[in-house]
């Protein structure tokens, strides 16, 4: 279980401070897939870095299974938006995937290899281990980054706008990959995006964030079936209803939607 308790982040600059996140408070149950959606520059990445222990929050706390996250820790893995910078161009694909496993105690060389190969096969890149990342397309590189996270076997997978830089078709494929991995592996996934359709298509629950300084505007349960696909799910009236509601919330045309719903 992942708990974010009244998280606040203020960047202290010289002479002025910028409040990026005002107050964010939510909980992810074990095995849940939650999407965070908000306008560009709303502190989504800041939030995710605080959750991952890469940034220290100014106030509040992050708890993973009850124990506070004060720095990077084994239970958490991130897939970054910038796959080209997150994968190391001097390492082959297989070595990139193996890198986080190298300091795992009690994991032999063979086990490490097997795990990496398995993870690559899961994302459909069984043959790519010997290639360099830059020899692959953008979509394939992001698959490698996902495989690296899978091989690490985290309890919680954090994804920071992972598909923002790939084309629409590749993006649809990668979204389906995330859904498939989530249903097969039962991981807890926190998926950050600025794309409303993506958030509704992927999430079991969508948290709508405000502009910076960020607060959670609304939590929306997504009542779509577990099995989703790009054609029928996106044509589902429920899908349309949900995306309209999220959009209205972000645009602010129904400022007290939450009140009206009760």
């Amino acid at each position: 279980m992942l708990e974010i308790r009244h998280l606040r982040k203020v960047y202290e600059g010289t002479g002025r401070s910028v409040e990026a996140i005002r107050d964010i408070d939510f909980t992810l149950a074990q095995g849940e897939l939650v999407c965070l959606v908000g306008p560009s520059g709303c502190g989504k990445t800041t939030l995710l870095k605080c959750v991952a222990g890469l940034l220290r929050p100014s106030a509040g706390s992050v708890l993973l299974d009850g124990s506070p996250v004060t720095g990077p820790r084994p239970g958490l893995a991130i897939v970054f938006q910038e796959y080209g910078r997150s994968l190391y161009p001097w390492l082959r694909v297989g070595d990139n995937v193996e890198l986080p496993l190298r300091h795992r105690k009690g994991l032999s060389r063979t086990e490490r290899r097997t795990r990496a190969a398995e993870a690559l096969a899961t994302v459909g890149l069984a043959e790519a281990g010997r290639a360099y990342p830059w020899e692959l397309s953008g979509g394939m590189q992001q698959r490698v980054a996902i495989a690296r996270a899978l091989a690490y076997r985290p309890e919680v997978l954090l994804m920071d706008e992972p598909f923002a830089a790939v084309d629409a078709q590749t993006r649809a494929d990668l979204e389906d990959l995330v859904r498939r991995l989530w249903t097969e592996r039962g991981m807890t996934v926190l998926f950050v995006t600025h794309d409303i359709d993506e958030a509704v298509y992927l999430g079991e629950r969508v948290l709508v964030l405000s502009r910076s300084p960020t607060v959670v505007l609304e939590q929306i349960e997504v009542g779509l079936p577990v099995r989703r696909d790009q054609l029928t799910t996106r044509a589902d009236p429920e899908f349309t209803r949900l995306r309209t509601r999220v959009l209205e919330r972000i645009r602010g045309t129904v400022p007290d939607a939450a009140a009206r719903d009760q």
């Binding site: 890469l54 990077p72 991130i78 970054f80 910078r85 997150s86 190391y88 001097w90 890198l99 300091h103």
Partner: peptide, 28 residues
Amino acid sequence: DQVADETARCYGVRGGRRLLRLVLPSAG
């Protein structure tokens, strides 16, 4: 690169391993 460095931190790649796998090749 900052993202490369955050990746290393996130995945617990530290100390000598960080030097060998990230810093030296990147500065190569």
